[in-house]
Write a protein that binds this DNA or RNA. Structure first.
Lengths: 338, 338
DNA sequence: GAAGCTTGCTGTACCGGTATAGTAAAGTTA
DNA sequence: TAACTTTACTATACCGGTACAGCAAGCTTC
């Protein structure tokens, strides 16, 4: 025990004895407490998990996810907690969400029915859900996806648009062109945004088709735009699940010889850096992704501290604000200048 | 023990008994083996660490680092290993590199004297060093930074350039304009690249100044370019530590009314996506960052397997290839068209 | 100068699993 | 049918620490 104190709680023994013990340890080749043993004895691992749907690669590729994770990392740094990336693995027998030692976890933008989420729930460790369907008994961080989507769709309606396409993504399908549009996506936020868009479009009595792709990525937007604009003219405005898809849509339209926004208006979602980098710059919904990461990490840190104190878990639902950002990719339907 | 087998090695007992045990466990609220206890008993944690110098944020912000980590994640996915991001923390008493349970670690682009690296070494877990000074007894993954830098500097020399500036980064300093250039950077690769540039420049008897910033980032390049080009004309070519700094340099030069490459040529390093996104597109050294991540992860997985088998650790040194990519940011010195 | 702190240093009792060897019963081989 | 193998299950012995209570000695306090 005194040896343990020498390494882990230096204030519990005299500097002199501590020196002797450390010297002896050095001779014996002992390098300090074993992290696994310490985790077992203390009941704390010093790491928190982030569960990301399928592959981890998008976590680094996608600018929104990267910003979110970066903010988490920044919030965690002063606490000394490490960040463990969990995935729903390829193999059946190895499930990181079940097997990796963590003090708590963030569930980010996962499919609802993911077995990995079930495993985390079963472990009874503090959990914070981000961009997931809010559930009682869990701490959740969200934006009002539906209201934000409704607002940007209404903005297009107000510009006179009546024939819409919606470009969205859902890993589970169905994929392809679907009419009428329906909130069939496997991810909660995609469904909510669809609800919001349809709220505004239906109210205005507008026409809309949707095209659903597996992934929210540039090429999915590009192909969707070409598909829609080739076969389904005259669409005058396209609503996209994300900025990165919107960029694909813009370039897809441009590849067909169409001009944005003169021939077709395009809006995205997130206001990621790409929205400003594009030509034309993108009208979109801004959400503060860094603040979301920070809030999620803070909530989890608090939940872990509470669990350690034995106090009952608080399950708060945070809803972060959004803001519409009007840029160049939207305009009045068939402006006179055309 | 039979209970342990029921959860962890189903083939060791009859399906019938297993069902009974699982049912009993369910009634009792037992959710399966505790990861920490399992890690202690098995001597394996199911996670590998990646040590990144200071804050973790650059890991997500920087496209090169993100691609590297993405490749690691992709390589790890089928093995079921989780990826734990380690940092050299803010607090003295909490050192993730010492306290977090991992089976092995990747050391990526860290300052040599980082105490976190020492901790990892002391733990005697398998380690793979990436972009670090190759040392006997460790597995290392590198490119030939010096040769690549020499080649691109030589390319500029061959275009007739004789007055150079070098824009580089070193967290530890010294910072500011330094002449003559010297490999004083705290990171190994920055020193090697400096060696390479100077190899070519000295051979040609060229003039050069260097400006060293703390971080390799856009603003550092931007400010450096304005500083250099304002005070130290006539520099005709600028060598940069990274593509992202090079973009800053290009925009800094442009902000002064200079044209790239007509008035000044600029080269970068890495061939990250930004090199193609820029105007003009950037002449740079391509390295296959994804391959580097894949190789690093594979080497670590092998090393962990070997350590488990008790076989002696192999310490191989891999050197990945590079390739010069000529784009628009470089040209003959004072071309006739100017 | 007796009661009441500190300070410094131990025992004891877990934390929650798994590897390994061992045993009894059932199945196989010659 | 005796000897050998397999299957199914179990007892023992760790894995490597930490929390907590206990205990003696030196210091206050009134």
């Amino acid at each position: 025990m005194t040896v343990s104190n020498a390494f882990s709680r230096p204030d519990q023994l005299s500097p002199d004895l501590r020196r002797q013990i450390l010297a002896a340890a050095d001779v014996l080749g002992y390098v300090g407490p074993d992290p696994s043993a310490r985790a077992l004895a203390r009941g704390a691992t010093g790491a928190i998990g982030v569960l990301l749907t399928d592959s981890l690669a998008p976590a680094f590729t996608d600018e929104v996810a990267a910003e979110f994770l970066g903010a988490i990392a920044a919030r965690l740094a002063p606490t000394g907690l490490a960040l463990t990336l969990l995935t729903s693995s390829g193999r059946d027998d190895i499930i990181p969400a079940r097997d990796v030692a963590i003090d708590g976890a963030l569930v980010y933008s996962c499919e609802v029915d993911s077995p990995a989420v079930d495993w985390l729930r079963r472990r009874r460790i503090p959990l914070v859900f981000v961009d997931q369907e809010p559930a009682v008994g869990s701490t959740c961080i969200n934006i009002d996806d539906r209201a934000a989507a409704r607002a940007i769709a209404q903005y297009l309606v107000d510009l006179g648009h009546r024939r819409f396409a919606i470009v969205t993504a859902s890993l589970a399908g169905p994929h392809g062109i679907l009419a009428p549009p329906a909130p069939t996506a496997s991810s909660y936020i995609a469904r909510q945004r669809m609800h919001g868009w349809l709220d505004a479009l239906n109210l205005a009595g507008s026409d809309a088709v949707m095209i659903q792709q597996p992934y929210s990525e540039f090429s999915a937007g590009f192909d969707s735009a070409r598909h829609i604009l080739d076969t389904l003219n005259p669409v005058t405005a396209i609503l996209c699940l994300s900025d990165v898809m919107a960029r694909g849509v813009v370039e897809g339209a441009q590849s067909l010889g169409l001009r944005v926004p003169d021939d077709v208006s395009v809006v995205g979602f997130d206001d990621s850096p790409v929205a400003r980098r594009m030509h034309p710059t993108l009208t979109t919904v801004r959400q503060n992704t860094a603040a979301k990461g920070d809030a999620a990490a803070s909530a989890l840190i608090d939940a872990i501290a509470q669990a350690r104190d034995g106090s009952a878990p608080t399950d708060e639902h945070y809803v972060l604000t959004t803001e519409m950002v009007i840029r160049e990719s939207t305009g009045q339907v068939r402006p006179s200048g055309h």
